[in-house]
Design a protein around this nucleic acid. Sequence first.
DNA 1: CTAGGGTTAG
Length: 606
Amino acid sequence: MGSSANSILSLIKSSSLSKSQLLQIHGHIICTSLIKEPTVVTSLLSLVALSSSPLRDIHYAHQIFTQIPKPSFHQYNVMIRAYSQSNSPEKGVLCYNQMRNNRVQTDPFVLSFVLKSWTRMNHLIGGKQIHCRVLSDGFQADSLLLTSLMGLYASCGDGTDARKLFDEMSIRDTVSWNVLISCYTRNGRSRDALSLFDVMQKEGCESEPDDVTCLLLLQACSHLCALEFGKRIHKYADDYGYSDRIKVRNALISMYSRCGSFDKAFEVFQGMHDKNVVTWSAMISGLAMNGHGRDAIEAFREMKKVGVSPDDQTFTGVLSACSHVGLVDEGLDIFDSMREYGINPNIHHYGCIVDLLGRAGLLDQAYDFITSMRVKPDSTVWRTLLGACRIHRHASLGEHVVSHLIELKAQEAGDYVLLLNIYASVGDWEKVANVRRLMREKGIQTTPGCSTTEIKGKVHEFAVDDDAHPRKKEIYEMLTDIEKQLKMAGYVSDITCELHNLGAAEKGNALICHSEKLAIAFAVLVTPPNSKIRVSNNLRICVDCHNFAKVSFGAQKVTTHGLPVKSGNWDTDLQGSHLFSSLKFSGTGQTATISALKKSMTGVLE
DNA sequence: CTAGGGTTAG
């Protein structure tokens, strides 16, 4: 290697290289025979492909790479690694194929990068081919590679294969455990994920939970509304010094908000000296989902004032706050302001605006908005509009929206129920019967409603009209008692969410036994006065049960989050649109929290 | 020298 190579090498490695200097060096390397000098080219490639400097530019790296006559192992390595982290992981695979065609030897590192590419593409078959290569190359004992493979099976399957690999591993470090936990939470097995927390802490387990374990478990707690478990993780993080980490704090804010413990979320937020975008976004979403829409918008202003620049997730939070409170103009202004931050609206942002317009009754405007979107509308966007049609009883538009869902082949049981609701709300019983018949013919199964409440760490579960509970007699008595008090307080059951053509009196009776009411009655029964009651649902609450809860626990303190009720408008009016409530029961002083779970719960969580 | 773990609206 000549002296010019040496001086260029030290130039590349100097930390402050300008873009023009880089172009100059690149030009020089091409003009001279330095392009055949592996050390120089590799360090240039590493700088452009992988470094954290502003010079990082994967397209430019690719340009340099293609000019190399016969790339070395290291040069392939750098490119495959860079592509596996980029937003075109498929190019990493191409690069790997080229490497193999050129008979360049691979190693565990390269295999792990190309595995990451396949994993990010959610391509099981491609990943499996790498699995075969891992075995044929004799790396079957490399625990890091095996963990990467677990990651592949975790994102492409239901977790069975990931678990199998995990069981077969001879050395499992914390990351392996974390991959398994993450796999479980993503596949709706949050209970299994939480149970691993105890297993990891048992005597003889080679690895113990770290900060990422805490993050993952906190997420599982949110899914299950398992506040008590969440508090345990919080304590663990405190004890082991992980709770100083900003990511753990952010996860705590998120967990407490989603579990309905807004005060705790705010406490964590206020105790943080360094607040990043994620912190602010988590808090803004937390405020929005707990009924403090205006405060969420205020927090949004505050974060900009202290110099934190909002990102796409901040906007989803603040836009959803606007739609919850019904601030249409404010929401649209904020949506427009995204451009100033160089953020392109994604499907979530569009969804929020559809929700915003829809709830406000601007249904045609919402429809036009969907058709003018720069992103192809997905089924959730249409479903949001369908929900708005339900609120405002717009049957013809509802039918039209359903036709879009059918076109997308995305109709779900819930969509038929929503359509049924719309027809029922306008009293078109013939069409209600049609939809019912259609559902029967197609064999569409609706998810049975179920509510749970956590008493002394044990989760009690209730179904609609449940009579399986050992204390059912007392529960129904308590329910009657509450109803009596409510009638005096002026509560009238809302019958528009019932689907059958019954008389008003019959409907009033039919509504009584929704699972959320049973869970509330049970919780009031077994908890002492002034305690907190928390009820979780697997489905969105019906407007009557929501009103029931609001009136029972005092309409003043109503805050809501989770899935919207089947009808109703904004948080602030009694037709409130969300499920989560932090309320006070006027009779005995209990406080109730009702929140929605996206996944149904079964079994008992100890 | 390098690797594997988390993210949102409805």
